[in-house]
Write a protein that binds this DNA or RNA. Structure first.
Length: 285
DNA sequence: ATCCTATCCTGGCTGC
DNA sequence: TGCAGCCAGGATAGGA
């Protein structure tokens, strides 16, 4: 589902179509997408503002607004499982459209930024103080704060299984189910291993694996393996061709040939090679 | 502090 | 073939 690479790709491809444009109106197809605001309050918060920038933090897309050259809040968009952003003509409604912004360019040309979301878990909300809203997130795995030293120390003081820890956005921001499974496989670590007991060299291997997997996936515009994730241009990502374990249960492990196994860890489908990722001792389930 | 469960949603798949 | 029921899954809330 949309994780860091898919969100990064979405932000990058939407950015050139919306930055510098003014929001001249909004339409709401599903109120809960706004995260608590009424359509009227949302419209009042965004109408007349100019989109100054489109950024990404964790799995959030930040649409930064300005009025008279001054920061005027941010629209925070979370794709969750099935959310998409597209920009097209200022007319009609797309299937599964939950919120739309009507835009006007410098030459008065019109367009529309639409948030589409089949399962309605996604969010498209206005926040006057985005920094406060995002303050509980862990470091960016591709950013300068995510060093091998930091990661080693952070793992050492957590008494928790690796997989749920890596999925915790307050620990590290941006990983989801797919890239956690891929990273753990590449580091040869079982998802139920306790973070505090991961040896130093394995911690470094995991640190490197996370960065390599995410960087390679960003380069390929994310992963598409069902009908949901597409780039804003409508193209599928390409990283799914490089999956080594995710969604490959029953198929041979690319490293040793044993069949990849699917288990459930923390209510999440989890894919491992039982030979390359040996189970921790004295830990059941 | 960590774990577990429920909740939110719908399309697509499974099994009878 | 038809259809009910189950499943996926990011984040969060509440209880143990």
């Amino acid at each position: 589902m949309p994780e860091l690479p898919e969100v990064e790709t979405t932000a990058a491809l939407v950015r050139p179509h919306v930055v510098g444009r003014r929001i001249v109106g909004s339409e709401v197809g599903w109120v809960r997408t706004l995260g608590g605001a009424s359509p009227e309050a949302f419209d009042e918060a965004v109408r007349g503002a100019v989109i100054a920038a489109v950024e990404r933090r964790a799995k959030w897309i930040l649409i930064e607004l300005e009025r008279r050259g001054r920061a005027a809040g941010t629209i925070l968009c979370h794709l969750r499982m099935t959310g998409r952003l597209v920009v097209d003509a200022d007319a009609g409604t797309q299937p599964y459209e939950r919120v739309a912004l009507r835009l006007e360019g410098p030459g008065r040309e019109r367009s529309r930024l639409r948030f589409l979301d089949v399962r309605k878990f996604g969010r498209f909300r206005f926040e006057p103080d985005p920094a406060a809203f995002l303050s509980n997130l862990g470091p960016e795995p591709l950013g300068p704060g995510f060093t091998a030293e930091w990661f080693r120390a952070a793992l050492r003081r957590r008494d928790r299984a690796l997989k749920p820890l890596l999925l915790d956005q307050g620990f590290l921001a941006g990983l989801g189910n797919i890239y956690v499974d891929e990273s753990l496989f590449r580091a040869g670590l079982h998802p139920l291993r306790l973070a505090s007991r991961v040896p130093r060299d394995r911690a470094d291997a995991l640190h490197a694996a996370i960065r390599e997997v995410l960087a390679a996936a960003v380069e390929r515009e994310g992963s598409s393996f069902d009908t949901f994730y597409r780039t804003p241009e409508g193209q599928p990502g390409q990283y799914q061709h490089l999956f080594q374990v995710y969604g490959r249960d029953g198929q041979p492990c690319p490293r040793c040939g044993r069949a990849v196994k699917k288990l459930v860890v923390g209510q999440r489908g989890t894919h491992i090679c039982t030979r390359c990722q040996p189970a921790p001792r004295r830990r059941s389930r």
